[in-house]
């Protein structure tokens, strides 16, 4: 006998061991985030400004998946770090063809109608960005904008934002 079975088993086991050792040595142990809590939004009437901003931030980072592209590795989407300046400058620029007249209206327009104006270098006729209305409700979109305003250092007012 030439130990065909034994040789095969040993080679096979070595392959598995090598893969596991590779993973152990070269792949960091990342603990994935636990599943999110079942989703519920307060009625707009009962919301405080803090509720709105928290909803905005959690939508921005979570359900809306904005941060998956914006300011993420890979340069898939324009940076939102300096959104106040960018939005104002965009609306002022001659290339801008959309309907918005001020910066925040432009941000809203980009959320619900991404194709209205496409930032240079991020798409030709169609923006790669999905419409926010695809999976976000009206209040969530408002909350995201309120959060972005707050993040840019603007004062946000509840009744103003819920309009």
């Amino acid at each position: 006998m030439r130990h065909g079975v034994l040789k095969s088993i040993i080679v096979g086991a070595l392959v598995l061991a090598a893969i596991l050792v590779f993973i152990k040595l070269f792949i960091p142990e990342v603990t994935p985030a636990p599943p999110p809590k079942p989703y519920s939004i307060k009625d707009p009437g009962e919301m405080t400004i803090v509720d709105l901003l928290m909803l905005g931030e959690s939508t921005f980072r979570g359900r809306g998946s904005c941060v998956r592209c914006h300011d993420a590795p890979g340069d898939r989407a324009p940076s939102l770090k300096d959104i106040l300046a960018i939005s104002i400058e965009t609306v002022r620029s001659e290339e801008y063809k959309g309907k918005a007249t001020d910066g925040w209206a432009y941000v809203l327009e980009s959320l619900i109608e991404p194709d209205a104006y496409i930032v240079k270098g991020y798409g030709k006729e169609k923006s790669p960005m999905p419409k926010a209305t695809r999976n976000l409700s009206d209040i969530e979109i408002k909350a995201v904008i309120a959060y972005l305003k707050k993040r840019s250092g603007l004062k946000v007012d509840l009744s103003e934002e819920l309009k």
Partner: peptide, 15 residues
């Protein structure tokens, strides 16, 4: 950190 180009303070946008 790098500053923003426009800051909203004292109720106006400051470049």
């Amino acid at each position: 950190p790098a500053p923003p180009r426009i800051v909203n303070a004292y109720d106006r946008n400051i470049e």
